[in-house]
Design a protein around this nucleic acid. Sequence first.
DNA 1: TGGGTCATGTAATAGGTTACATGATTGC
DNA 2: GCAATCATGTAACCTATTACATGACCCA
Lengths: 222, 222
Amino acid sequence: MPLNQTTYVILGLLSIEPNLSGYDMRKMIRRSVGYFWGESYGQIYPTLKRLTAAGLIAPGSSGSSGRKRRQTYILTELGRAQLRQWLALPFQNDPPRNEFLLKLFFGREAAPGVSVAHVRDLQERNQRALATLEEIEALAQAGNPPNPHFPYWMQTLSLGKALTQAALEWGETALKELTALEDVAARTEQAEGKRAKKKRVETKKHVHRNDGTPRAKARGTK
Amino acid sequence: MPLNQTTYVILGLLSIEPNLSGYDMRKMIRRSVGYFWGESYGQIYPTLKRLTAAGLIAPGSSGSSGRKRRQTYILTELGRAQLRQWLALPFQNDPPRNEFLLKLFFGREAAPGVSVAHVRDLQERNQRALATLEEIEALAQAGNPPNPHFPYWMQTLSLGKALTQAALEWGETALKELTALEDVAARTEQAEGKRAKKKRVETKKHVHRNDGTPRAKARGTK
DNA sequence: TGGGTCATGTAATAGGTTACATGATTGC
DNA sequence: GCAATCATGTAACCTATTACATGACCCA
């Protein structure tokens, strides 16, 4: 019986709050760990079935009288044990794939302005990310009472913020250096006056879809 | 004809240095972009075939007389155009999946000491990562001559270092706070003297396999 | 009664890793 | 002649996303 990573998010969430439905879990994941973890229904629902079969979770009391057609779950003792066991295992580094860095690495081959535009794009995304993290933090601080999970949640937020801020600072100087570099390149080319190959091109304005839409699928140009 | 991400690493590498074989590419990827990108042979070889069929790359002169059974490739004009087009497209955020943060987030459920051990583990990995990045930087600085790619490569290194350093700094304070927290927890439990459930457990020493071995596969406990 | 969102589920597909097989070449 | 490593390739498998289908419930 294959226990994938989705398993542990589910077990973890149920350890924090029992009687969640698959739908709830998806929502909670987006709100709470969304900036470093994602799950789709296509993973969640089948996994719920398998975990139930394996006895790690069990159908929960769906809120006394309430809604029909809504299956919630609770953690079994077996499930809790499994979660703890997983927690004690060394973590795995996610396979490193950063498209931004890849494009920057090959930046010399791009038209002038392209890499600069990417960095600007990154800055914007990180500014939004930072704002989101700070919002979450404020909200969490508000619900202050002695929630025992609180310190752990704060630490994850703290790392998220630290990384985002570091990236933002890098972006500031990178922007200066790359702008200088590509300005020179563009002027040199202009002076040479030949082959129009490297046209000054701006990247398409990034249509950002923060909500509702699913995560982007890694895919080339058809 | 599906162009996956592997496509663009291949095109990019060939834009920097023609006449690479699939084997070479794998090596180059590990050495140059390894800390933010990975590729396996299972991806590279089939992609090379497809790109050849699509006319984006072409068999290269395999070094005049030289070795048998070693196919190298060069970028075609079509391939270069495709690379530039891709470069100009907005980058996609890699699907966020950070197992370390997930374990930290659920840290409260773990046995005392577990989260602290994870942070320590992270610190070690990041220290090694930083050392590697600095090595690469030194090496690149040594091969100083007017390599036009150089500024772009330096920028990627610079971001890598900035992120790693930020994580290391976070780790220092996180370690203190978590140690304090879990010490208290452990003592409280001890004082209560009941259920031996939360035993003080250290995570298994992380056997780190930096070289030779393939990347870890995300997988639960069988 | 009709629109929105709650809620569950699945089929198609992509994209990738792992493990294995196979043989050539090189250096000792 | 042997070991290491260079080099290519493929089949099995997995994990996950996307897109779609379906229907209940709520409320105005």
